[in-house]
């Protein structure tokens, strides 16, 4: 491997009641690359994303980020890690409805202890970058779906994370808006050098990745990207 592996999942197992969500899943993510996680619904791709991001803990197996074992960390340590190193974009309903778009984008910075003024300045520049500066002072409910999703992308990137986890980021959008979001998202991620783990069932969204991994029955079939 020429590039350094940043995030690794090794042989993860996790069951919810009767169903095996993860059944020996493994995955490697290199710094700066975009990996699409594809597979039928219920295959465990979202669960894998949650485990990779340290939101959930697998029952067995290891998740290693930058040499650190996430599965051995406490909840607090993982929260701290997520605040500093990770960003998230979800399908919908992820922006805090009471806060303005600017405040939503500034939120991760403020959670990391950045001052209000500073956080807002950075948030504004990110909103401009994603071409949604005009909704900065509106609430998410007053922005369109596509704008809201771009605000969410801005929020995911505002801390300059090393990995952004995106779970069906365009799932609630039409193709044109979805495309716009993806174009800006991936471009911005590449610029900042963030790796992206992208869960999607849409091939055209997956086409923004460097390579894809297919999740089926809780296992991953990883396809190496051959350029």
């Amino acid at each position: 491997m020429t590039e350094q592996t940043l995030l690794t999942a090794e042989n993860l197992h996790l069951t919810f009641g009767e169903t095996k969500a993860l059944d020996g899943a493994s995955l490697h993510v290199r710094a700066g690359e975009v990996v699409a996680l594809m597979g039928p619904s219920g295959s465990g791709k979202s669960t894998l994303l949650h485990c990779l991001a340290g939101i959930m803990a697998p029952e067995s197996g290891r998740v290693v980020y930058d040499g650190r074992d996430l599965t051995a960390m406490s909840d607090t340590e993982r929260s701290t890690l997520r605040r500093g190193e990770f960003g998230f974009v979800f399908q919908f309903g992820q922006l805090v409805p009471e806060l303005t778009c600017r405040e939503n984008v500034a939120l991760p910075l403020r959670l990391s202890g950045v001052g209000r003024r500073e956080a807002h300045r950075t948030a504004t520049s990110w909103l401009e970058r994603l071409d949604v500066a005009d909704v900065a002072d509106k609430r998410p409910g007053q922005a369109s779906g596509g704008q809201g999703q771009r605000v969410a992308v801005a929020r995911a990137l505002v801390t300059q994370p090393r990995v952004v986890f995106a779970d069906e980021p365009t799932g609630a959008l039409d193709s044109l808006n979805g495309e716009l979001v993806m174009k800006m998202f991936i471009a911005a991620a590449r610029e900042t050098g963030a790796a992206v783990v992208l869960v999607t069932h849409e091939p055209r969204v997956a086409a923004y990745s460097n390579r894809e991994a297919v999740v089926r029955d809780g296992r991953v079939r990883e396809q190496e990207f051959a350029r």
């Binding site: 091939p203 055209r204 086409a207 923004y208 990745s209 460097n210 894809e212 297919v214 079939r221 396809q223």
Partner: peptide
Amino acid sequence: DTQRAEHLRLMREMT
């Protein structure tokens, strides 16, 4: 899956 990878490769190219 091999075919899918090939399709996706072309889709990436197109994108």
